[in-house]
Design a protein around this nucleic acid. Sequence first.
DNA 1: GGTTAGCACTCACGAGCGTCGAGTGCTAAC
DNA 2: GTTAGCACTCGACGCTCGTGAGTGCTAACC
Lengths: 344, 344
Amino acid sequence: MDMDDRKLRILQAIIDDYILTGVPVGSRTISKKYDMGLSSATIRNEMSDLEELGFLDQPHVSAGRIPSAKAYRLYVDTLLKTGKIPDDSPASMRSLFSGRIHQMEDVIDHAAQVISSLTHYTAVVLSPKGEQPRIQTVQLVQVSRETALVVIVTDQGVIRDSVIRIGGQMDSDTLYAISRTLTEELRGVTLQEACQRMPEISERISGNNRVLQELYGLLSDGQRSPGRTHMAVGGTSNMLAYPEYSDVDKARNFLSLMETRDKLADIIRGNGEMSFTVRIGPETGVPEMTDCSIVTAAYSTRGGQQGTIGVIGPTRMQYSKVLSILNIIGHQLTEMFSGDGEDR
Amino acid sequence: MDMDDRKLRILQAIIDDYILTGVPVGSRTISKKYDMGLSSATIRNEMSDLEELGFLDQPHVSAGRIPSAKAYRLYVDTLLKTGKIPDDSPASMRSLFSGRIHQMEDVIDHAAQVISSLTHYTAVVLSPKGEQPRIQTVQLVQVSRETALVVIVTDQGVIRDSVIRIGGQMDSDTLYAISRTLTEELRGVTLQEACQRMPEISERISGNNRVLQELYGLLSDGQRSPGRTHMAVGGTSNMLAYPEYSDVDKARNFLSLMETRDKLADIIRGNGEMSFTVRIGPETGVPEMTDCSIVTAAYSTRGGQQGTIGVIGPTRMQYSKVLSILNIIGHQLTEMFSGDGEDR
DNA sequence: GGTTAGCACTCACGAGCGTCGAGTGCTAAC
DNA sequence: GTTAGCACTCGACGCTCGTGAGTGCTAACC
């Protein structure tokens, strides 16, 4: 016994119906609603076969069948293979980021909002992250008589800034001079290398040890912290609308997972930089999410960094809709971040 | 009939017990657990009086009593009046912010984490906000041949940065020169005033119109956006642990309120800059939160700005514990932000 | 007069039970 | 291979009823 075309069509119908209703679907439903020209009895036989093949589960004997993770896998794979990701973006969706938004963090927050409200699932957006950034410019800006702001511009447009103390009197011209020297010395160098080279530079520019010491501390700090990836989460409350989470304990588990941002980021970042990823139930590898699916898509910036947008929903997710939306938003983000240099 | 001392003690006992258990408390419980030297019958009479006075509610006739909002009000007021905010900070709590944290946003996120995990309620932390910031320094940092970063340092240490395009070739020395002029012209001026003064300055520094135009756009943008107050929310999932939210619909309402950040910020910012605020149930003025209480405390920075930390929990919140924790964290934040200038 | 014991009464809660109906598997006929 | 028919299963729902916590009232007590 193996999968023939009819079995496939029936399975498809079952999945469609279950995604729609969330209720185990019976043979009669399929026979009538999706008129296959087959009686319920025939469907029943086929369903029995499908269950044996591992595509359907039966919660209890007198209920209908529900698709298994394996069924969803098949479903999604054919969806992806046939490239049937409808790009049916209505005009309304075309320019969700029309208003002038300068800060990257705002864009990311907004994207999470938009995705979650379009899909009615939970959306997660991760800021781009890529190679070790290389320093382009270092500049010290005087803030007060005692403190200065360090601005480090890297090739990724990522800017780290932090306030450091400058010992004694130091006018803005002196700071500028130091900045120039530092920039000359450190251009094209990663933060890590910069850190190593500091002592050497320190000798060359004598007299301003205080500043360089602080800078050294800053660099070694910055190098440790993993590049401040920003993450936005939207629509966690959406999940409570699904009967899957009518159990409060389950809901709480889910929510607290959404709150442990580090873990969540790891999960979403997941398997590399595939343009699309769909992980279904157990495939997520997260025990708390056995009845969730995660769909992610990548977007990129002109610096070649990869960001991730993702949707978390019940396994009976409207995959095609989600894929289509992620596709569109992903493109928009890529355009936005690689486009006119207005990013951040 | 009015409140005598005994009634007060009984009410206190009822509130304590209800806060602890969340279950309507009966006369026998009080008589035995809190040994008042009174029989349950006497307690019953007193409870009946307290109900008449509006301090107790009775869910149904054969259940115990639960405290009304009015009761909590009284409870909290005496708590605040007697100044019984225990400062029993164990050493472990003394320095929650010990690790080097430079960015203000990180501090705020972390504070929300800490507060929520200490209280087991939901915590909200708002970044400081105060007067219109006044410009201290303006500096242009070259990023690429075509773009530059604008750094505006204000007296509040708040730094807005954004990338603008610089027309044509422009070396870093020229940018520095422009920066100097701008700083001289704009020092001590609010963003709004700066915006007005731009045309005039534009004439003086002729030739670099492109840069100044961009800067003008940036300023008028920045002036519109309300100062980017950052907000961190932590422990929303904690709320689901309380029987008050075993109803999924209620939980969802609560969560989606937590997600509409603007609204939430308004609610938390609430009534001004009192050092402590306790709003109980209906006092919150938010229909969705009739069975929540909000406790807020202020912290401040050396710039004289006020930030807010808040806890949202069920009305039967452990007020004294929450007040104590907010007190401690508030002081720590104030110290941190006014202290050594390492804030952002 | 305040306090307490006693008692009848109320009512949410949960267990137990029967009914209903959706859905199945199997068999026999087409 | 398909379909009609039928017996069977089992969760959902609704009903009843016992249980127990808690109350209010009354009468006795100090």
